[in-house]
Amino acid sequence: MLYIVITYLWASILLYLLLGGADFGAGIIELFTSQKNKQVTRKTLYSAIGPIWEANHMWLIIAIVILFVGFPVIYSTMSVNLHIPLTIMLIGIIARGTAFTFRHYDAVVDDMQHLYNTIFAISSFTTPLFLGIIAGSAVSGHIDPQADSFLDAYIFSWLHWFSVTVGLFTVSICGFLASVYLIGETDVEHERLRFAHKAQFFNIAAVVCGALVFAAAWFEHIPLFDWVFGNWIGRIAILSATLSLIWMWTLLYQGKISLLRPLAGFQVTMILLTTTFRHFPNIVILKGGGYLSLTEHAGQEKTIEALAWALLLGSILILPALFYLIYSFQKKPVGYEGQAH
């Protein structure tokens, strides 16, 4: 039963990274789009994510609920020592969700739009940045539950090169996912080309940030290299991700777009797999070599059992409906402008 719960936790983190990530990325693209193209980008973006953005963000809530019900010690330790980045991330979530809705539903279109757009684009950047910082801090070995100075306990637990680079890496991944996703959302050739350029840009950014993550890990004595390349699963995953990336770019130059999304999704899945596989089941690594483990710090058996059943039953209800939602809004009927009237 415990493994069912862990699988769900991992899957919801992955889905949040993929779906929520593409969603954040759409805002990041907006931030990196020249003024004259912003309006078109916004339209494409809205028709692509409007119907599903709420659902995309549910994965975060599922992951959090799994954590606090099933792994309360992990949840409360992270909540205490990462209080500040979590709060900043929350503010990002508030700002982004509301700005996105307000700009669309405001009955009067005037200068306020400018404000909503700015808030939306900036928070689309900061939220995944801090998500990455939180994830990076969890495994960085900087969290020290015994620390007695404010700086050590609440600031240096997350403010260091490794987690910041992980944050930047997360941002580029989001931008990359969104660009690839949006290529398939528009029928206009030069639009498509523009998103392809964006994909290229974020792809390069991800590679650069990835290199920085390794550099920071080396600098801070985090055995990231060993986690990723020290076992065959990691090596195979990285290799196949790289191959699929090459394949993806060839397809893109040939103008074939149908496989782009699954390939991008595959690459991100492989990245998450390699970075989590090696130190599983320890998801929080503390200062001085201690750790919090998904197997040792799980709740009592009955709780885990109930949680697993709730998740299984939930999926039976949710997944078909979710697929139908995504499917229905993929095919656009004639005269559809991507707006809720």
Partner: peptide
């Protein structure tokens, strides 16, 4: 939350499903 999470978490885990269905249906 360290102590209460595993005990009163059941409604929250079921609620996750309810929220999800709500978000999908709203879409």
């Amino acid at each position: 939350m360290k102590h209460a999470g595993p005990i009163f978490g059941m409604p929250f885990s079921l609620e996750g499903t309810a929220f999800f269905i709500e978000a999908i249906a709203l879409g």
